[in-house]
């Protein structure tokens, strides 16, 4: 069985995996990273989105062997020293979740979206999150949250830059 080495939320794991094992099953069933849920089997819903080497991927459409040597961040690795990531705070503040099942993927996808567009318009957020489905909120509060998160992230970065 192939042997892979991955770093997940700052911890290195060396694992023997079947070539067909999906990254999301490695995360959930082997590493106990159950914060990343599975919502579909056709990579439409985006609930399983994680960051792989800094960019968002749907972890149901990546094989664990493809993640060999990669650095993965899941929703569980976002907060630092007990402080939530600004995007987590924004989702809470704007009531951008109800059942919360899509939320981990939505937050990870939103963070990646800001890589390319740090201050997205409402339309840009809607287009950018097209690959993440939510059945509860109707998306308005998610759009607000992403834009709020974006503002707070850029403020934090400015704070870092000037300190």
């Amino acid at each position: 069985m192939p042997r892979i080495s991955v770093t997940v939320d700052g911890i290195r794991y060396d694992e023997e995996v079947e070539p067909r094992l999906l990254l999301v099953h490695l995360l959930r069933d082997r590493l106990g990273k159950t914060g990343t849920p599975i919502g579909c089997d056709t990579s439409n819903c985006g609930a399983c989105t994680v960051l792989l080497d800094g960019r968002s991927v749907k972890s149901c459409s990546v094989l664990a062997v493809q993640a060999d040597g990669c650095d993965i961040v899941t929703i569980e690795g976002l907060s630092t020293g007990g402080t939530w990531h600004p995007m987590q705070r924004a989702f809470h503040e704007e009531h951008a979740l109800q059942c919360g099942y899509c939320t981990p993927g939505m937050i990870m996808a939103a963070i990646d979206l800001l890589h390319d567009d740090p201050d997205p318009s409402e339309e840009a957020v809607r287009e950018g999150l097209e690959g993440n489905l939510c059945r509860c909120t109707g998306y308005c509060t998610i759009v607000r949250a992403v834009r709020r998160g974006a503002r707070e992230m850029s403020q934090e970065q400015e704070g870092v830059a000037t300190s």
């Binding site: 959930r28 990273k33 159950t34 914060g35 990343t36 849920p37 599975i38 899941t74 929703i75 569980e76 976002l78 907060s79 939530w84 987590q88 989702f91 809470h92 503040e93 009531h95 979740l97 919360g100 099942y101 939320t103 981990p104 937050i107």
Partner: peptide, 19 residues
């Protein structure tokens, strides 16, 4: 009021049955 439930849901600590 912001919701009490959110703390576990936005941090990936929720308890879904499949977990």
């Amino acid at each position: 009021r912001r919701r009490k439930e959110d703390a576990r849901l936005v941090t990936g600590r929720s308890q879904w049955t499949d977990n």
